[in-house]
């Protein structure tokens, strides 16, 4: 791997039964927020899933710097109809409770997860990843369900995360989001 790299993806062709995306190449270094953009169905999430070993790699390589702690925010977070876990307990799972949360989240931390709105839960989920000690953060459509206020908070915490020297990969079909937060952009096509 090139020194300074957290993640290197070279000519990756990935999918499940059959290839659905690629070839895709990019490199992610510390302090960088890389955007994977493209229309719905272009295979952006498949690239992310190939990185963590959940999708089949048909050709090409995915290399991660050894010992890199990774956290993943999935596109469809698990939401149970009855979930007595509090917001604070949820953040404790990833170690994100050690940092002060973004102001809109602070009053929600003692609430049960099933009492939060979709947008509130999404922001909590993203913060559980960004507030953790992970070196590599993979976010899949992080602004799903968010209203403009929550989205502004998301953009703010993503900008803040650059200062912490980690690498963030943002998968989104929202061009304005990736353009607002990403230091580099990679277009993905099927």
């Amino acid at each position: 791997m090139i020194p300074g790299s957290l993640l290197e993806v070279n000519a990756l062709v990935a999918g499940y039964q059959d290839p659905v995306v690629g070839p895709v190449s990019f490199r992610l270094t510390r302090g960088e927020i890389l955007g994977l953009a493209g229309p719905n169905g272009s295979g952006k999430s498949t690239v992310l899933r190939a990185i963590i070993g959940r999708a089949r790699i048909f050709s090409g390589t995915v290399e991660r710097c050894q010992g890199v702690r990774t956290t993943v925010q999935s596109q469809q977070p698990v939401r149970l109809a009855e979930m007595p876990v509090t917001g604070r307990e949820f953040l404790r799972l990833t170690g994100a409770d050690r940092q002060p949360p973004p102001p809109p989240l602070a009053p929600l931390l003692e609430h049960r997860l099933d009492r939060l709105s979709g947008g509130q839960f999404q922001l909590l989920h993203v913060w559980a990843c960004l507030g953790s000690a992970a070196d590599l953060v993979l976010l899949d459509e992080p602004d799903n369900n968010m209203d403009p206020k929550a989205r502004a908070t998301l953009i703010e915490v993503l900008h803040e995360s650059r200062k912490e020297g980690r690498g963030v990969l943002v998968v989104s079909h929202e061009h304005d989001l990736v353009e607002a937060v990403c230091t580099r952009l990679v277009e993905v096509a099927p």
Binding site: R49, I52, G53, S74, V78, V85, L93, T94, L138
Partner: peptide, 20 residues
């Protein structure tokens, strides 16, 4: 308990950190 909760809410966490 923390591992079961982590695996439930972050189902890709362990795979992403090399524990399939």
């Amino acid at each position: 308990a923390p591992r079961l909760l982590l695996a439930r809410f972050f189902p890709d966490h362990f795979a992403a950190n090399g524990q399939q």
